[in-house]
Amino acid sequence: MCKDRRGAFAGDVRCAAGGPRRFRHSGRRRKKPSLAADGTRDGRREGAKPFPWQEAITFGLAVLRLSPRDFWAMTPREFSACRTALCGAGKTPLTAGELARLMARFPDR
């Protein structure tokens, strides 16, 4: 195809000797979109939080100081390993009992 993707160029094997050949729709019906592994159309479950792109991009570009090219070339596993190395393993939030014990141990003055 030519650069603007509107038709074949002269060296294209699909180009007829008399000029560019127009391709018509094959008449086949479009397939319905397949279902995601969880049975939904777009892969999102009801109530699921969207991926925090803004935080990920900020962390990659500002904290890790990656170039945009390097950031987008990273795999999720590599990105997670960098985050874990700098921030530590993800921990669960404090429970109410743990917070109460800390507040009793270190009261505000």
Rank of each mutant, 00 (worst) to 15 (best):
M1E: 02
M1Q: 04
C2V: 08
C2F: 02
C2E: 06
D4K: 07
D4Q: 10
R5N: 07
R5G: 05
R5M: 10
G7H: 06
G7I: 00
A8E: 00
A8P: 01
A10S: 11
A10G: 03
A10C: 06
A10N: 03
G11E: 06
D12V: 02
D12S: 13
V13M: 04
R14C: 07
C15G: 02
C15W: 03
A16V: 08
A16K: 15
G18K: 08
G18M: 05
G19F: 07
G19M: 06
P20Y: 12
P20G: 08
R21P: 01
R21T: 12
R22F: 02
F23Q: 04
F23S: 00
H25G: 07
H25Y: 03
S26Q: 07
R28H: 10
R29W: 06
R30I: 08
K31M: 12
K31C: 09
K31D: 15
K32P: 11
K32C: 10
K32L: 15
S34T: 09
L35I: 02
A37I: 05
R41P: 02
D42S: 14
G43H: 11
R44V: 10
R44F: 05
E46G: 00
G47N: 13
G47K: 14
A48W: 13
F51Y: 14
F51H: 08
W53R: 11
W53H: 10
W53Q: 09
W53I: 07
Q54P: 01
E55L: 13
A56C: 12
F59A: 08
G60E: 07
A62C: 13
V63I: 11
L64V: 07
L66A: 03
S67G: 11
S67W: 00
P68R: 14
D70W: 04
D70G: 02
W72V: 13
M74F: 13
T75R: 15
T75K: 15
P76K: 06
P76A: 08
P76W: 00
P76N: 10
R77T: 12
F79T: 00
S80Q: 09
C82V: 00
T84Q: 04
A85F: 01
A85P: 01
G88A: 04
G88W: 01
K91Y: 00
K91T: 09
T92H: 12
P93V: 09
T95W: 07
T95G: 14
E98I: 06
L99F: 08
A100P: 01
A100I: 01
R101F: 02
R101A: 13
L102T: 01
M103F: 03
M103K: 15
A104F: 05
A104L: 10
R105I: 03
R105M: 13
P107Q: 09
P107H: 05
D108F: 01
R109L: 14
R109F: 08
R109W: 10
